[in-house]
Computed example of a mutant assay.
Amino acid sequence: MRSARDLRIAVSALLLLLLLSAGVLAARAQHEIDDESEFSYIRGSENGPENWGKIKEEWVTCGTGRMQSPIDLSDRHAAQAPNLGYLNHSYLPVDASIVNRGHDIMVKFNGDAGSLWINGTAYHLKQVHWHSPSEHRVNGRRYSLELHMVHLSAENKTAVIGILYKIGRRDHFLHELESYLKRIADTKEKEEMVGMVDPWEARGDGEAYYRYMGSLTTPACDEGVIWTVIKRVTTISAHQLKLLTEAVHDGFEMNARPLQKVNGRDISFFCPGDHHERYYAAADQ
């Protein structure tokens, strides 16, 4: 009886040891997976922005595309386009969640958050996310942060509104999310429900904007994206910017793709009325 009991104890101890070893190996594997990134923003690195097009076959457009984003929006090359008219959009408060995607922070709308209409086509707002510093530049100037409001049409075509930020007064839209930013810091793919969110508060109040055809600014860098970058620069507090940059994974505190070549693309600029000088002045203050 004693030998059978000893055998059972020995077998149980062995099984426990195997389970513990498996747990340690699994934890190590998970840690390695969490530390690995398919792409980075570190110039000169193997998976840095200049090499995105070589990492995967489906990412080749990142390296070969002729209509890539972001670009420098130069007033010297932008053509006045009064025919574009005011932005035709309507946004609705809707349930949303905040997601740490590792390389950025995204607010995902879980319902009808409203639409942006361009040339008779409705582009439905799906999510917003941030890049620091700004990806687009205006007349060579780079700003502290850029918000992207991503819209999709029924045909899965993309239209993005870009909003630039400089350090100043706190941003009300981000202020409502600050507690959630702290909660999802350094937690890849963690999703927190935040309740009703009004995307109109993210939109800002600028009426003048640039318009051009470009691409997504992360792999696979798909082209055919309609870009609308608001001329008026809004503000964000230094504390809010720190919350955003500290929430992402190490190495993604700066998650802005370098400027891409314009390659002769048309850049249009809409400004209400004939007094566009005051919009230039307001944006540059």
Rank of each mutant, 00 (worst) to 15 (best):
R2N: 13
A4R: 09
R5W: 09
L7C: 05
V11N: 06
S12M: 08
S12E: 00
A13H: 10
A13T: 08
L14E: 09
L14D: 01
L16H: 01
L18V: 13
L20E: 07
G23V: 07
V24P: 10
A27T: 04
D35S: 15
D35L: 14
E36T: 13
S37Q: 11
F39Y: 05
G44Q: 11
S45C: 08
E50F: 00
E50N: 02
G53P: 00
K54H: 11
I55R: 05
K56G: 06
E57K: 05
V60T: 07
C62S: 02
G63D: 00
G65C: 06
M67T: 12
P70K: 02
L73Y: 05
S74P: 04
A79V: 12
A79Q: 13
A81S: 15
A81M: 12
P82V: 04
Y86C: 10
N88Q: 07
N88V: 10
V99Y: 09
H103Y: 13
D104Q: 13
D104L: 10
D104A: 15
I105R: 04
F109D: 07
F109E: 02
G111P: 08
G111Y: 11
A113W: 02
G114C: 04
L116P: 10
W117Y: 14
G120V: 07
A122M: 14
A122Q: 15
A122V: 14
K126A: 15
H129I: 00
H131N: 07
S132F: 08
P133S: 05
H136S: 11
V138L: 03
N139Y: 01
R141W: 04
R141N: 01
R141M: 04
R141L: 12
S144T: 13
L147M: 13
H148V: 00
H151V: 00
A154F: 05
E155R: 05
E155I: 01
E155K: 01
N156T: 07
T158C: 00
T158Q: 05
V160S: 09
I163Y: 01
L164I: 00
K166G: 08
K166A: 07
R169G: 10
D171T: 01
D171S: 09
E176V: 11
E176R: 06
E178W: 00
S179L: 14
K182Y: 06
I184R: 04
A185Q: 06
T187S: 15
K188W: 02
E189W: 03
E189R: 08
E189D: 11
K190A: 10
E192C: 04
M193L: 09
M193D: 06
G195A: 10
R203C: 06
D205S: 11
Y209K: 02
Y209P: 01
Y210G: 15
Y210R: 14
R211Q: 14
G214F: 02
T217A: 07
T217Y: 04
P219H: 07
P219G: 03
A220L: 04
A220V: 09
V229M: 09
V233N: 02
V233L: 03
T234W: 03
Q240W: 01
L241D: 12
K242M: 12
L243I: 04
T245E: 13
E246H: 00
E246K: 00
V248M: 12
D250M: 12
E253C: 14
P258Q: 03
P258K: 03
P258T: 00
V262Y: 13
R265D: 10
R265K: 06
I267F: 07
S268M: 15
F269S: 10
G273Q: 04
Y280A: 14
D284Q: 11
D284W: 11
D284Y: 06
Q285G: 06
